[in-house]
Amino acid sequence: MNRSTYLRWGLALATALSSVFLAAAPPAEKILILATTTSTQDSGLLDDLVPRFEKQTGFTVKTIAVGSGQAIAMGKRGEADVLLVHSPEAEKALVTDGTGVNRRIVMHNDFILLGPAADPAGIAKHTAAESLQRIAAAKALFMSRGDNSGTHAMELKLWKAAGLAPDGQTWYQQTGQGMGQTLAIAAEKKAYTLSDRGTYLALQKKLGLPILHEGDPSLRNVYHVIEVNPVRFPKVNAAGARAFADFMVSKAVQARIKEFGIGLYGSPLFFPDAGTPE
């Protein structure tokens, strides 16, 4: 190969690769950063809704799916425009300190307690608090997300309500990973764990972890949409955030949420709640 051949190949390669930069970058005011939880992304709901929103409004949504904890932290720093999260205590704190505004309820599903079919701790037919107490008494293996997510926050709240502090016990282990991975690990290790129903339904067939406890009012898993306060963070895309929040509580989207998942899993993954009191 002589020099000009090298040059030609190099140029062709550079041209092909540079198209990645030219791929119609939208203007900054049209970009909306949505910080949300893994459950909304992993369930496929956002993949269904976001393209509709983009089409309707012309905004480009950058969905950053992380734990609720990290999503709220991004909001606190003004690094996201709008949050879709399920960690009520932290959300309220965000609104109280003025970082988040216009917190509105979108939907809910519920958390469920899963465990090995043999149920060595015998938690079936007990309340959530009793179930956890029985797990602790039997020193049965329990897998916690341990990642500061909404699910993790809920789990900690439940332990507290049961009057227990399992942290540091050998039977209490933290995966530090998302719901899907945590479910897979719990199934492998025949451990108890807490999961949101949406993710569980999506994975159910592959797991072999039956639901041992459900329906307790304390296991309700509520999702809120929160706009990040543009007064505090001038770079926030306030119009986009408002448009997305409005979109999520709109009649059409609420109707779509109601039927989402029926086709795939036989039951809906989320239940629309817009306009209802908490």
Binding site: D42, Q181, L203
Partner: peptide, 9 residues
């Protein structure tokens, strides 16, 4: 990573 998390092995 994401598909693994979703259980879509």
């Amino acid at each position: 990573v994401m598909e693994t998390g979703k259980g879509n092995f």
